[in-house]
Design a protein around this nucleic acid. Structure first.
Lengths: 147, 147
DNA sequence: TCCGAATTGCAAATAGATTTTCGTTTTGCC
DNA sequence: GGCAAAACGAAAATCTATTTGCAATTCGGA
């Protein structure tokens, strides 16, 4: 069975002479539990619920570290392009829809994106290395969404 | 036949008691001629080739104005999320591919995106109002790209 | 041509997420 | 346990795209 994200991360860090600390574990656990993207500030808030003394600087340092190590992903949204949002790096490619009313994030997969990339290769001879897709809109049948 | 972008813009501005000035015309003409996105700095450089004295502040003010008026679009790229890029507002929906080697931008259309939105509606009952798609990668057969 | 409002250039100010400094505290290895 | 390197907290610094204050200029309608 798959090893925990924290364990995997610990190994990756150790391989570079870095350490798995309580703060890094905390950040990873929060990211793992979250089913949406968090920015540094939100992460810091959540983290303080479990460790009063964790600093925002440490959250930033941790996010940079984990991002460089390929353990988490960083993305920027149009709604708020000035700050980074983070999530656990996921092997299987997925995309996001955000409800503008209730803020809920839906993660979904589709092979239509692969078809778009195939079209790009065929028509323009370009190879896509990086795909950035984000939809925004409204829930219509979600009970928690005030419509 | 379609009226020129500058004329259309002039009307929209006049309707709000605003003026079409030489600087605004210049910015629009540069955006119209450019086949890729420009940021404020690049736009300013180009503009100075035709009007030595145009200021960067005016470029920013003009971009804001035209954006608010719906005449141009503003977008943020992953490669450089910290600055805005601008292009003439286009009725037909299109998407972008950027070559990470040569920086060239390809604009393309595809109906596969509409299919993705249809899938989202069917599977999750959500209505997409806002679509953000951007691909990055490499040219393979473009003569100007150093591969 | 005249006038008030809109616009511009210049330079200085802003803003706010992220980074760094520094002294102190942990961590992993022996 | 003990040590050197790594990491931390707090607060100050940074960075730089964008905005703004102000005096001068321009615009368009009357």
């Amino acid at each position: 069975m798959a090893r925990s994200i924290v364990d995997t991360a610990a190994d990756k860090l150790r391989a570079q002479g870095l350490r798995m600390t309580a703060q890094r574990r905390l950040v990873l656990e929060i990211l793992e539990a979250a089913n949406s993207h968090l920015d540094a500030e939100m992460l810091h808030q959540h983290a303080r619920e479990r460790d009063q003394s964790i600093s925002l600087a440490t959250v930033y340092r941790t996010l940079n570290l984990l991002h460089r190590a390929g353990i988490i992903e960083q993305r920027f949204l149009d709604q708020d392009h000035s700050r980074g949002y983070y999530e656990i790096h996921d092997e299987s490619e997925h995309f996001h829809f955000t409800c503008l009313t209730c803020g809920k994030v839906i993660e979904f997969e589709t092979d239509l994106v692969a078809q778009i990339r195939a079209e790009l290769l065929e028509k323009y001879g370009v190879i896509v290395e990086n795909t950035r897709i984000h939809f925004e809109g409204r829930c219509t049948r979600h009970p928690d969404c005030p419509q």
